[in-house]
Design a protein around this nucleic acid. Structure first.
Lengths: 250, 250
DNA sequence: ATTGCTTCACGTTCTTGCGCGTTGTGGTCT
DNA sequence: AGACCACAACGCGCAAGAACGTGAAGCAAT
């Protein structure tokens, strides 16, 4: 049994059972608990599971429920959201953009996260109310029907008081030369204003958005700390991004 | 059973039963009450439940049953909401408060209403996106978990630019002498700030709220244009309201 | 010989159940 | 009604045992 093969098996078991117990696995696979623990440690470092005393649990109960219930692989947005959720740590202040991926991100956040989340999306704010220990700050303004987020001069102004550690940005295209793009000029301006208020900007972009370009540029690639995506590791687009100094998280 | 997994189980049980009893759980899970108490203490420290003598309860009863609360007095709320929806006419600008009655109001609005709606509730704003011809303006600020609306200094300030024809206000009590009341001081201040920005304030109050009083006064009855309610026409409380110059819409 | 993976040994950390003194609750007595 | 008391629940400290991480040693393949 190859090491990598064994780790895949562990993940499959985790999806099936909803938990892993180090001792049981050692007996079952005929290995020492040390080796199992080492695997679990590595998988936890890769963000694929949550290490707990005695074994491991899925990264987030919410995400686990979805995969167990459906019995299927997570959908593209959920994979990206689950990975991006790991960027939010206790004590941090994060700006969260609008859109369905951002909503999936909120659902993937651990229930006991103690963080401050700033958003201009009423939908995201409403979903965050379910997280009792997350401090929510809503940015107001004229709400754009197209994407259901607050935009415009008032919203840009309201954003100016925010100072965040990171900005989780949703776009419709990530292109090597056009940079990050979206379909509406006001929306692009709003996203740009938010990016200025955060130390690091991370882009949430499921596979179909990589290499695509929309009419309005939000930011050039240079101003992005990283892209969270689910494209295959060997995709040539990834290399193009890395060559521009953009970290790729998957 | 993993320790961390047990805490997830406790939270699930809490959501299902609405309470946790330490002794029962110890017997059921086959461990000492001490361990259960330890778990409950930790979860309480994480803000995920409220520790009480003998076990635990949801963090805030109000938050916990906000979703089910919609189902209880449903038809009552819907009647009030349907009547209040008639106050919004094409071309008007209305401020809409938060809460389940306000949400019912949005759902009761005609699909083709051409109005401007200002709200400090992300939930109301999200629901309004379904109305293509309604212009939405969101008031931002710190989102208060208890009622899921933006409150505080920033929100009051953001409200100052609004000039509306009417304000549809939700409260928890409508009392002849205490006036309009609600359960939180910040919330009361926010509602007061909104009332100042509208020419007429109408209160949405289903029957059980008439005659009730909560800790904090929002406005005296004199500053209200009308109360939308579903109490019986012969209810003595109605006459008390009318004697104070308040129109009763039903 | 080197590399990669595993196992073993050991000191550390975590969880758990028990004893103890304290605090909260409900019922009883004056 | 207020004082009192019995009992359950509580928090804390402690000790036993399980689980843990680390570094050294073993082992197979190259």
């Amino acid at each position: 049994m190859l090491g990598a093969q064994r780790q895949d098996l562990l993940l499959a078991r985790l999806r099936a059972d909803g938990r892993l117990v180090a001792k049981e696995l050692a007996a079952e696979l005929g290995l020492s608990e040390d080796s199992i623990r080492r695997d679990l440690r590595e998988l936890a470092a890769a963000g694929l599971l949550q290490r707990v005393y005695g074994g491991a649990l899925p990264v987030s109960p919410a995400v686990a429920d979805l995969s167990v219930r459906g019995g299927l692989a997570l959908d593209s947005k959920q994979r990206v959201a689950a990975r991006a959720a790991q960027l939010l740590t206790d004590g941090c202040t994060a700006i969260v953009d609008g859109g369905t991926t951002a909503l999936a991100l909120v659902r993937a956040l651990p229930q006991d996260l103690r963080a401050t989340v700033v958003t201009h999306s009423p939908t995201v704010a409403a979903a965050l109310v379910e997280h009792p220990t997350v401090e929510i700050h809503l940015i107001g303004g004229r709400v754009f029907k197209h994407s259901a987020v607050a935009c415009g001069a008032a919203a840009v102004e309201a954003a100016a008081v925010v100072n965040a550690d990171l900005f989780l940005l949703g776009v419709t295209g990530v292109h090597a030369t056009a940079g990050l793009t979206t379909g509406d000029a006001d929306e692009a301006a709003m996203k740009r204003a938010l990016a200025r208020r955060a130390a690091d900007t991370y882009v949430l972009a499921s596979a179909e958005k990589i290499g695509a370009a929309s009419p309005f540029t939000v930011l050039p690639l240079e101003e992005v700390a990283g892209v969270v995506t689910d494209v295959a590791e060997d995709d040539p687009a990834l290399r193009a991004l890395r060559e521009r100094g953009v970290a790729v998280l998957r």
